[in-house]
Write a protein that binds this DNA or RNA. Sequence first.
DNA 1: CCCTGATTCGC
DNA 2: GCGAATCAGG
Length: 183
Amino acid sequence: MAWTSEREDLLKKLWLQGLSASQIAYMMDGFTRNAIIGKAHRLNLPKRTPSTSTRPKARRVRAQPSLARIGGSSHTSARVSSSATDIRLRTSLDLEIERSIFETEHANVQAEDRVTLMTLGSRTCKWPIGDPGSEDFHFCSRDAEGNGSYCAFHHRLAYRNVRGRQMQSSAKTEQQLLKLAAS
DNA sequence: CCCTGATTCGC
DNA sequence: GCGAATCAGG
């Protein structure tokens, strides 16, 4: 995944909106949190903590395992929220059912209704189509009217959870994403 | 533990 | 230039 001017613009936009690096990485599929932070640095985007007081001063980078790739392989597991006001997180079974329903609903999305993440509208569906790693990866851009205001990221969250790539996030994080999607 | 951004430096 | 590994902290 290479940095294009479009992706840089999206990063700048989200960074300036105050989203955290992991949230941005979550939305920009293909980039890790470290990649986001590193790029934000090179773009000289504003610092997040002017409070300083204690400059980090990272020390030596130890010898890299090099073979220990990130790939993880953690499986889906439902996170449980402790607050009643938080977004309820579903079990993996719920997600499988939900994914099945959504995929059926998006089985015949027309080409003209497909867009990339970079050109997603604010009031469109955003259901991901295809494998995120392929060149053909698109999002549904059909009008989300009637699907609920949270349609977009709700779909995306469900999809990614099912794929076993759930972002380590809090309900608060998800609420921020949903808020952005609805804006 | 959860998470955040900052930094270094091998690639 | 890129970003994993690491650090420092809330």
